[in-house]
Amino acid sequence: MKVIELAEPYDKSVIYPGKIVLALGFFDGVHRGHQAVILAAKEQAKRLNAKLAVMTFDRHPSVIFQRKDPANLQYLTPLEEKLAHFKALGAELAYVVKFDEKLAHLAPQAFIDKYVVGLNAVGITAGQDYTYGPHELANMQNIAKYAKDRFEINCVALLEDGGKVGSTSIRAALDKGEVERAEKYLGYPYETTGIVVHGFERGRKIGFPTLNIETSNDKRLPAPGVYAVEVKFNETKESFVGMASIGYNETFGQDLAKTLEVNLFDFSDMVYGQKVTVSWKKYLRPMVKFATVDELIAQLKLDKQATINYFEKIN
């Protein structure tokens, strides 16, 4: 998949010269609703003998419209992950557009002229709630007016599954620790990628050695708590099951930094510096401040058994 970055006003020489069908959206999470849009665009591209292209933005529009600090924004799928999903779904091109003041203030007609027709799109596919400017003007109901019969329009209905399948619903589920509900909406387990770093080795001293995982600030973590997880080492592709905690280690003191720690079962290798991917499978319990370390150890034994029981059940 070829990735092409654009910034307003873009350099026309970088545009793919052939016919494309564009799947349009921000696509945070690339959840089941997004997948439906991209796969519908794939069928449209096949029918129109064009390449499948997906357009997204380099940052969330709220950075401009709501003046949010980009350093504090957390995504379900940061750009690198998002692009990997696009490729897996069959995209041949990905346009990553810089969302800045210049782009934000393009009139709807100008956006369609430059970022659809200007990219040689013979068709577009988008969800019914897609907008390309002010909601009341630049919506899918009005797009034919701006298209002027220059490309085919395919509008995909919103996906419902006990509620709208959307990025907002998935964020809300993760913020409650409901990783199984998030997986239902995503169509795949929610994942966090990070690097194994040195910690305080408290877990090792009490018989539960952990991998301390440093994650990117722009990636949303599930709510603090203890979870059953599966961990894949990206280099070797080996996977192991275990239990993970997100929290502040309050049993060992106050005002400690939030950490992500994973205790893998039947694993004792030294893997500092390695990249791992954590798949969040099931929420087990909230974080608790224990009165003694012995109480913590007793609970960790229960957590381990609950994790073993969970994986035995699903397997």
Rank of each mutant, 00 (worst) to 15 (best):
D28S: 10
N142M: 15
I64N: 14
A110T: 14
E43M: 03
I124K: 05
I64Q: 13
A94H: 06
A147F: 07
A126F: 09
A94R: 01
L73G: 00
P78F: 00
E160T: 08
G163H: 06
R150V: 02
H85S: 15
K87E: 15
D113W: 11
A45R: 12
A84G: 12
I112Y: 01
P108V: 05
K68N: 07
L93K: 07
V96G: 00
L106H: 03
E152R: 14
K42C: 07
V96Y: 00
A94W: 05
L158N: 14
A144I: 05
A88Q: 10
A107Y: 09
K51A: 13
G127E: 03
K145D: 14
F111Y: 12
K145V: 15
G123N: 11
R67N: 14
A40N: 06
A45G: 07
A147M: 05
I143C: 07
I112S: 01
T125Y: 02
E152F: 06
D100W: 10
D149H: 14
E136I: 10
G118Q: 03
H34D: 10
L103K: 01
V116E: 04
G162D: 13
L89K: 03
P17D: 08
N139V: 12
V156R: 03
P134Y: 02
F26S: 13
A126V: 11
I64H: 13
E136R: 14
G90I: 02
R59Q: 12
H31Y: 07
Y75S: 08
D100C: 05
G29P: 08
F151C: 01
N139C: 14
Q109K: 15
L73I: 10
K164T: 01
M140V: 14
D58L: 00
F57H: 10
F26C: 11
V37C: 03
Q35M: 09
S62C: 07
V21H: 05
L83S: 06
E92W: 08
Q35P: 01
P17F: 00
E101Q: 11
E81A: 15
F111R: 08
K19F: 04
A41K: 04
Y115F: 12
Y95D: 02
L103D: 06
L24F: 12
A53T: 09
R32C: 12
H135M: 11
Y130V: 04
L103E: 04
E43Y: 00
V156M: 03
H34N: 07
G133Q: 04
K87D: 13
M55L: 15
K148H: 15
K19Y: 09
G33W: 06
V122Q: 10
Y75D: 12
V63P: 11
E43T: 01
E43S: 03
H135R: 13
V21I: 06
K42F: 03
V97S: 00
A157M: 07
R67V: 01
K87V: 10
A71Q: 15
L93G: 02
G33E: 09
N142H: 14
T56F: 04
F27D: 09
F57C: 08
T77N: 13
L137W: 01
V54E: 08
T131Y: 04
L48K: 10
K114D: 01
A138M: 05
D69C: 11
L73F: 00
L93T: 02
V96R: 00
A45W: 11
P108Y: 01
K114A: 04
K114E: 04
L48Y: 03
G29I: 00
L76D: 08
R150G: 03
